[in-house]
Design a protein around this nucleic acid. Structure first.
Lengths: 304, 304
DNA sequence: TTAATAGTGTCTATGAGACATTATTCT
DNA sequence: AGAATAATGTCTCATAGACACTATTAA
């Protein structure tokens, strides 16, 4: 609390008077931006007329049209102007990028390392938005802009665990893979996470090792968002923001599976979801197998 | 992505060249600060030689020595300088305020509403630090500065729940009470939370209604931190950052209880903690009752 | 008929809540 | 002796995992 507090007599004037004479000073300030992680579920290939299409997790990226990282892909985002709140900036960005409004939005994390933007000091507040794919269909591919949806995958490459007397170190390397619709672009990054437990002190770090085609530190931000999504899907109802109004329980289960990276048993899954959904009475027009009930989210569900 | 990208020919020069000629521009930027929520556990009154002292949750606040909010209490914090990362700024602040280093630190949330600081536009990144009280004893009350520990309590005042056809609204009012050691200062705020569920859209808001003696929007930040602490205590091992090296299971349980606000059954609690702690072989010197084993954190515990 | 998915029933292991019981200490 | 906490045992209930089984459709 020092900058700018240089009014003549800081105490013996009224607050009103103080504010009138307050001078913010002209020391160097960082730029502040918002970065948007817009996720959706898109349906992938259908191998065979009977098999269900496997859903995929999609992320919206923008191709950079200028330096730095010219031609690479970045999270949509922009500067926060002086008279709008962070969330307003995030919603504005979302609106201009996807045309969508009234969407699930959650602040993720604020990235403030010094060298993260080679141009100047930029502090970036990241927001995660979850979009129902059916609404996006209406939107029709962002008129010729350089925005594109990428399929997101994470693969565990290596896991080392070293246990010593006072604690342990777990080191993981995973590959983040982003590929666009027609497979013309394949972006990737190796993310190395270290988790040290030493006595009571637990510390973690995340490093990017080999980044291909992803601008700035955005691969790290994407990794962070995936972690958040993965953990929140377990104890909240955010998944439903990714689902259309009506859905089958199998579709819901598959979304859980691609996000959590684990296979689930249908019986247990249905039991767990029973209180969260209501039957609509309608059925999904099916192909080659028993038709499935369509459910919708129970508006009166309990919070956990 | 517009500010500052006004190099003459943004594409047909090399990235290196671009960066050399890059001009960050002089549009108005917000100030960026970090706000620290330093929590610790302190032991309260001991009613009777036999009874155990009830632990309390303590929060470090600083009395404002200038306008605005002169004389009120605020979270310790300060401006992020242009050449330090957010976390560096947070650690620096922690060091100067408590003299402590190597402490659990977690980024909480970034507050960016337009009017939250009457002086100028300030975006504030909040960090939560958890400190073991035994280490603080050494530190001896911040030499005559205006820092002080406050006991934190939250009381639910009112809960309204309105269920309609497409969803429901839950409205809660709770009182946040902060009181310092000798009870000379009693700060408080009424926090009103609204949670709307309408179809699939879930939205929430938090408002401050009646703030007594707490500067800026800091009561809201404190409320947010308490929520985070309460939820994280359930599925992580952060509690141990609040405990001394050696502790009794009853002490640990009491810390769980004041943070979660719920009474726990000793038998179940001990079963749950069994994998997380190890016996030290030592016993707590006790008074008027059976002595209790001292445990320490199991460095080889599982992550959940 | 068959491949595939939809949906249910049941057994078991696990863990939490509830409560009772025994152990140990200092005044 | 008595008050207080420490620590363990046991019963019950709810839930998750595992797996088997039935139902239904389009080609």
């Amino acid at each position: 609390m020092s900058h700018g507090d240089k009014a003549l007599d800081p105490v013996n004037i009224s607050e009103e008077e103080f504010l009138k004479t307050y001078d913010a000073g002209d020391y160097e300030r960082p730029s502040v931006t918002v970065d948007m992680l817009v996720f959706t579920i898109r349906s992938g290939e259908q191998e065979n007329y009977r098999k269900l299409a496997e859903p995929e997790l999609g992320l919206l990226l923008i191709r950079r049209g200028g330096h730095p990282y010219l031609g690479q892909w970045a999270l949509p985002g922009g500067f926060v102007s002086i008279d709008e709140s962070l969330e307003d900036a995030a919603r504005r960005e979302l609106q201009t990028e996807t045309g969508l409004d009234d969407i699930y939005l959650e602040q993720l994390y604020t990235w403030g390392d010094v060298g993260r933007d080679p141009r100047t000091r930029v502090i970036s507040c990241s927001y995660m938005a979850l979009v129902d794919s059916s609404e996006l269909e209406l939107q029709a591919g962002d008129d010729a802009s350089d925005a594109s949806w990428f399929r997101v995958e994470q693969k565990l490459i290596e896991e080392k665990r070293h246990i010593h007397e006072r604690g342990r170190v777990t080191e993981r390397r995973l590959q983040l893979i982003l590929s666009n619709e027609d497979e013309t672009e394949q972006l990737s990054a190796i993310v190395e996470t270290k988790e040290k437990v030493e006595g009571r002190v637990r510390s973690g770090s995340v490093e990017l090792l080999d980044v291909q085609g992803i601008a700035f530190d955005h691969a790290k931000i994407i990794h962070y968002a995936l972690e958040r999504l993965r953990s929140k899907i377990e104890y909240t109802d955010i998944v439903f923001n990714l689902m259309p109004e009506k859905f089958t329980l199998t579709a819901l289960q598959k979304v859980y599976e691609i996000i959590s990276g684990k296979k689930l048993l249908a019986a247990a899954f249905r039991r767990k979801m029973a209180d969260w959904v209501i039957e609509t009475g309608e059925y999904a027009s099916s192909a080659g197998h028993r038709p499935s009930r369509l459910y919708r989210l129970n508006p009166d569900r309990e919070t956990l």
